[in-house]
Amino acid sequence: MSQEINTPTNSSKRPDCRSDEIHTLINTLERYNGNNVPKLESYLEQQCQSSEESNNYDLQANLALLKLYQFNPKLFNEKYVVKILGKALMAIPGPDFNLYLYMLNEQFTSISDISSVIELKDLLESAHYTRFWEVLKENPGLKSQLESIVGFVKNIQVMIACNIATTYQTIYVTEAKSYLGFEDDEGFTGFISKEGWSVDKSDQGLINLPLHKQNEAKTVVISEQIRFAQLTKVIASSH
């Protein structure tokens, strides 16, 4: 889950994992048909099982499922809502979590597992990463549900690492470790070397992060851009 600046997000485009059947389903009036709930649920299951990094998430299909729950509260299934929200945690810093939340009926948000996921989301979004891992650990039932989504922990770690990398040029090992939720050194060393981070040679407690546009803090001068339309008059009169 890369969060490079200037990558276009195409939330209106169709992800590769979406089958034709699902595609027609959510683009026609069928999306209001309560009988389609099982199809969307199994599609969600498939999104949670797939290990393909970039293509196992379909915002629109999941929104369609929540819409059916919204219209037919009797069909509501807590298990799948938790899964959808778990997927949304992995999509932070995108706004997906709130988009789902806006569509839940109010009474559902007081269900204990769902309100716990909401708490987790608040922690992640307010960058209380250490606390996030603690709360997750205190809640074994929810933890196992979320971790049944393939790549959950790893995705969250990458997301946190990404944010650290845009903020810090150097960071203390202890800090980074608790942010990323690592308990053992081995996993941690493996993870940071994969991210391209290196431990400082003179100070073993410090990690150097690669410099790039977002963490080097260089003054940028925004130069003006001229649209072609601005020049039409000049060009037209130049014979």
């Binding site: 200037n6 997000t9 485009k13 977002q214 803090a217 940028v220």
Partner: peptide
């Protein structure tokens, strides 16, 4: 659709205990 872009004119980086700030 759209692209992710910086929404403020102010950016910074932290090095140990110092914040280096740059304004576009």
């Amino acid at each position: 659709d759209g692209e992710i872009s910086p929404a403020t004119d102010l950016d910074f980086g932290i090095q140990q205990n110092m914040i280096y700030i740059a304004e576009s």
